[in-house]
Simulated scan of single mutants.
Amino acid sequence: MRIEIRPSALDHLISEDEIRTVVSFPVLRVIIAARREGAAPVLFIGPAADSQPWIEVIADLAETAVAEVFHAMMLRPGLVASLGLDEFIDPDYGPQRA
């Protein structure tokens, strides 16, 4: 799958390499509700490297050969709790970068 990164995905200072790593090797992948018709958003969660804080990345997979990443930031405990993921993962959290 080709990974395309929109400028909005870089707003929180997560690097393109970190984004590509989390999308390619997620600890958890969750289908989330679409906010626009025809979208197929997927949340990818995991660290970009061993012993690093976890990152959340959202990509639109409407086109099966392309992951169009539009959001990336340090994983938030509130997101994990709101999706009921705390029973599945025990992530390392880090401070937001921006």
Rank of each mutant, 00 (worst) to 15 (best):
D92H: 14
A59W: 04
G38R: 06
F70R: 12
G94W: 07
F88I: 09
F25Q: 04
V66T: 15
M73W: 09
R20G: 02
E63L: 14
H12K: 14
T21V: 06
G78K: 06
L79I: 06
D60W: 07
R36I: 13
A33N: 10
R6A: 14
V23H: 03
V22P: 07
A67W: 00
S8F: 07
I19K: 00
A40W: 08
A98N: 14
I55L: 11
L79M: 05
S82V: 00
G46V: 11
D17G: 13
E37M: 14
E68T: 15
P26Q: 04
L83Y: 02
G46H: 11
F44C: 03
L79R: 07
G94E: 08
P53K: 15
V22M: 08
H71T: 05
I55G: 09
I31K: 11
A98M: 13
V66H: 12
I14N: 02
M74F: 02
E56W: 08
H71N: 05
A72Y: 01
H12A: 15
G84T: 00
L83P: 01
V57I: 12
E4A: 15
I3D: 04
F88Q: 13
P41Q: 04
G84W: 01
R20Q: 03
E87Y: 10
R76I: 04
I19Q: 01
P41L: 02
A62C: 12
P7W: 02
Q52E: 14
P26G: 08
A34V: 11
H71W: 06
Q52I: 04
S51R: 12
I58N: 07
V80N: 01
V66R: 13
R35I: 09
I58F: 10
E18N: 05
S51Y: 08
F44M: 05
E87M: 09
R29E: 07
E63C: 13
D17L: 13
D90L: 14
D92L: 15
A81S: 04
V22T: 10
E18W: 04
I89P: 07
P7M: 03
A67P: 00
R35E: 12
G46K: 10
P47C: 03
W54N: 11
A67V: 00
H12D: 14
G46W: 11
I58L: 09
A81K: 08
A72Q: 02
V27T: 12
E16S: 12
S24Y: 11
R36K: 13
P53H: 14
E87W: 11
G46S: 11
E63W: 14
L61I: 12
L79Q: 03
V69F: 06
L75Y: 00
D11H: 08
I58G: 08
V23Q: 01
G78I: 03
D11E: 11
I19F: 04
E63F: 12
R2K: 15
S82L: 00
G94I: 08
M74A: 05
M74R: 08
A33M: 10
P77H: 02
A67K: 00
I45Q: 04
A67L: 01
E68S: 15
P26A: 05
P47W: 01
L10Y: 08
A98I: 15
R20H: 02
H12T: 13
I19V: 04
R29K: 10
S15P: 04
